[in-house]
Write a protein that binds this DNA or RNA. Structure first.
Length: 285
DNA sequence: GTAGCATGGTAAG
DNA sequence: TTACCCTGCTACG
């Protein structure tokens, strides 16, 4: 699940459920036990996401730095009376005190790549390594353009580089390039500023929708299952997409088979016809 | 039932 | 370059 939209959604939900409340903090699995003991019973200040990084703040500039990695998960669930016994390897559990009602919310973290208690300075150091995040109002797309416009690396690889821009993963990468008809292998320094601005604006919009829906949808109205009379996508992410994990299936726009190739240990998907290389300009006529 | 894969990234070798 | 985090789904037998 975890591209940037997932973490921003989690930050909102965590703040909504726990901010300003005393929380019980534990680590049933044990790997976060020492830090959990330090935080247990304190008031949770709030949660904030930056790209795919999540920070949960406690008083005294203490931050729990969470990164879900490829398959980590943070579930927020309601409980009445008592939260259930942890299932599996729960690295971190937060439980709202449920002051008078005897019910509340608990959050379980499993399979995360990172879960560490850090200082504000350490948090800042992590953030400093990240490029602009389309989901943050303070983001400056010009910073990303500086990197892209000077790089011979493919735009497909640049979009996945969190130091270029933060929050885009394999799905948004493939989908935004499709929507802008750009060949993923095209070198960054051959893009025009106008194209980058359009990509950025699109990411801002798509990822905001992703936060709302808590899934990735990228197809335009005319290509939805309803509009096309085709069956809806049915897999673990659920969102409607053009090319991601659709290799061998016909492109929703032109019917050409979607292709895939491994690029830097990740599968890249694209339509070879819709996303032709910027015309090598053969002799007209 | 279970092998293999995946919306990611870091650290060890 | 490889291991790992050790989840949770799908495909396959």
């Amino acid at each position: 699940m975890p591209e940037g939209h997932t973490l921003h959604r989690l930050a909102l939900d965590l703040s909504g459920a726990f901010a300003g409340e005393q929380v019980r903090v534990s680590s049933p699995q044990g790997r976060f036990a020492d830090s959990a003991a330090l935080l247990d019973g304190q008031v949770l200040v709030g949660a904030e996401a930056w790209g795919k990084q999540l920070f949960v703040e406690f008083p005294g500039e203490q931050h729990v730095h969470i990164h879900l990695g490829l398959y980590g998960k943070l579930d927020l669930l309601p409980y009445t009376a008592e939260p259930p016994l942890p299932v599996g390897q729960v690295r971190l559990r937060l439980v709202s005190a449920g002051s008078t009602t005897g019910s509340g919310t608990y959050a379980d973290l499993r399979g995360a790549n990172t879960c560490n208690l850090v200082t504000a300075a350490q948090r800042d150091a992590v953030v400093a390594k990240l490029g602009p995040d389309p989901l943050r109002d303070d983001a400056d797309p010009g910073r990303a353009w500086l990197r892209i416009s000077r790089s011979r690396t493919s735009i497909g690889a640049l979009l996945m580089d969190q130091s270029v821009l933060a929050g885009v993963g394999n799905v948004y990468r493939a989908e935004v390039l499709f929507r802008h008809r750009i060949d993923p292998m095209r070198p960054g320094n051959t893009l025009r500023r106008k194209q980058w601005d359009a990509i950025w604006d699109d990411l801002v919009e798509l990822m905001k929708l992703g936060v709302q829906a808590n899934r990735i949808d990228t197809v335009r109205e005319e290509h939805t299952p309803e509009a096309m009379g085709r069956p809806p996508r049915k897999d673990d992410h659920g969102g409607e997409v053009y090319v991601y994990r659709r290799s061998g299936q016909p492109c929703l726009v032109c019917g050409t088979n979607v292709r895939t190739v491994e690029l830097q240990q990740r599968n890249l998907f694209w339509c070879p016809k819709c996303q032709r290389t910027y015309r090598p300009r053969t002799n007209a006529k």
